[in-house]
Amino acid sequence: MGAVGEKPRLIDESGRRIDGRRPDELRPIEMEVGVLKNADGSALVKFGDTWVLAAVYGPREAVPKHMTLPERAVIRCRYRMLSFSTHERKSPAPSRREVELSKVIREALEPAVLTELYPRTTIDIFIEVLNAHGGTRTAGVTAASLALADAGIPMRDLVAGVAVGKVDGVIVLDINEIEDMYGEADMPVAAMPGLGRITLLQLNGVLSPNEFRTGLKMAMEGIRRIYEMQKKVLRQKYAVIEEE
């Protein structure tokens, strides 16, 4: 939010958002699993113009070998934005933001993966943001969770994520880049909906305690819907073959 003063109006007279959505409406979401041949599991997830590719390898042998844990598999996670995924070119060198988000995303997935089944091994998760338009980390978590399922790695539940925000005083679901840039707050959330467990929660912005509660509730409802889409796409992969 600079002093440039070009902030667009984010909510119009009829309560619609800058891209025409209602406050509690998700962007059009597309998901596909098994999009890469070599990876053990993969997924491509699109939330509007935010496109994220996730690939999973493992459980596999750890390299170097000493970087293992005796009681569980180690998860290695990298979140990255491709250099041309943003308006200004993103330097391919890892930014501090990417370092933090790699950790936050790993910690969003750790509670879901049954790592204790595979001691002394490694599970690698690579998340590549192909096109960034807000909500890349939550799309990344959603895609990574699908890729883990596609790799056949046992999980307590799927993890789905979405960001809510406050724009022009209104709490809205699944904010896009413009709402993120000019809005008052951005709150990414990820959860295992079947178990009611929140695994990622960040707030970037200022909210009253009541606004926070409203936002969290809205996020959890959105996550429910995304979760149903995840399950559907995982089933679809096999339905397609059946029809052949």
Binding site: L114, L117, A149, D150, G152, I153, P154, M155, R156, D157, G194, L195, L234, Y238
Partner: peptide
């Protein structure tokens, strides 16, 4: 086990 887990009274799948 291990591909099915008990959560309370429910049995939950962990893999496809």
């Amino acid at each position: 086990a291990p591909f099915l887990r008990r959560v309370g009274r429910s049995v939950v799948a962990t893999v496809v």
